[in-house]
Simulated scan of single mutants.
Amino acid sequence: MKRSFYLLLCITAALLLSQSCTEPQDFSQFEDLSITPTLATGLFYMESDEETINEAGSLVTFYSQTVNFDAFNEQYVAEHLIEGTITYEIVNTTSKQLRITIEFLDEAGNTLDVEQFDVEADPSGTNIWEVAYGPGGKSLDILANTSSLRITAFNFGDASSVSAQTEPKIKFKSAAEFLFRLK
Rank of each mutant, 00 (worst) to 15 (best):
E115W: 10
L39S: 14
K169T: 11
E130C: 04
D70I: 09
S163F: 00
F62R: 01
L149V: 04
R99Y: 11
E47R: 15
T93S: 11
N73T: 11
E55W: 08
L59N: 15
E120I: 10
D70G: 15
N73Q: 09
A71K: 12
A71M: 11
L98Q: 00
L8G: 14
D49R: 02
G84P: 00
Q65P: 06
G109F: 03
E79P: 02
P37E: 04
Q97L: 09
A144L: 05
A176N: 03
F104I: 07
I35Q: 04
T61L: 07
L149H: 07
P135M: 12
H80V: 04
P135R: 14
S20W: 14
Q75V: 11
S34N: 15
L143N: 03
G109N: 03
S148E: 04
I35T: 06
L17E: 12
E167Y: 05
Y133D: 01
L143E: 01
E167Q: 09
D118S: 12
S64C: 09
P135F: 12
S18K: 13
D118A: 11
N127W: 06
F62D: 04
L179A: 13
V91T: 15
S160I: 09
P24R: 15
G134C: 02
E83K: 15
L9W: 09
E167M: 06
S148D: 02
D26F: 07
G42I: 12
T38W: 09
F72R: 02
E103Q: 14
I170Y: 00
F30Q: 14
A13K: 01
T36R: 13
S139F: 01
L182Y: 06
S64F: 07
I82H: 10
E50Q: 06
A14H: 06
E167P: 00
I35P: 02
F44A: 07
V60S: 05
I53S: 00
F69G: 06
Y63P: 03
F44Q: 03
T36H: 12
D141E: 13
Q97D: 13
K169P: 02
T87F: 04
M46N: 10
E74C: 08
N127G: 08
A153R: 00
D113G: 07
V162S: 08
Q97I: 11
S139Y: 00
V131C: 06
L143Y: 03
A175P: 05
S148F: 01
D49K: 02
L15M: 13
D141R: 03
E107C: 05
T101F: 01
I128G: 05
T87P: 06
S148C: 07
